[in-house]
């Protein structure tokens, strides 16, 4: 069973805005509205300490979150080392470290909720 089945988005050719699971996105935006202002410049990914060592793209994680493609997201975010360089270079002042923390928190909760069911 997919460990992150609680965040399922149907594999599809299209991004389906009708069906996507926006719980995680709603949670992140509620506590970190600055996430709205990302313009996908990629500065965060370029500077990312983890990204220099492995296939980890913090900007894409944000984009996946915004597009409701959250199935692989929780596993992906675990590679983050929390060093904070991304927040330091962001031209939009997105508090990226908090976005990561919020994703971790809510996906842990959703996961636990799913286990109960």
């Amino acid at each position: 069973m997919n460990e992150f089945a609680h965040l399922v988005s149907r594999p599809s050719r299209q991004i389906d805005y009708q069906t996507f699971d926006n719980r995680l996105l709603a949670y992140v935006l509620r506590y970190e509205p600055s996430f709205l202002t990302c313009m996908s410049c990629g500065g965060c990914t370029a500077t990312c300490s983890a990204g220099k060592l492995t296939d980890f793209n913090i900007r894409r994680i944000g984009l996946m979150l915004r597009r409701g493609q959250t199935d692989k997201l929780a596993a992906e975010i675990d590679k983050c080392m929390f060093c904070g360089k991304c927040s330091l270079v962001c031209p939009r002042d997105v508090n990226i470290r908090n976005v990561v923390l919020l994703i971790k928190k809510e996906s842990t909760r959703l996961h636990a909720e799913n286990q109960k069911v």
Partner: peptide
């Protein structure tokens, strides 16, 4: 399409730049 995050000087005074090629989604 990607914003430079930082530049560093190499031994021969060239410059190493880091950005993300956001269209291919990979660090460059």
């Amino acid at each position: 399409r990607g914003r430079l995050s930082e530049a560093a000087e190499t031994h021969d005074k060239r410059l190493q730049i880091k950005a993300e090629d956001t269209l291919s989604g990979r660090p460059l």
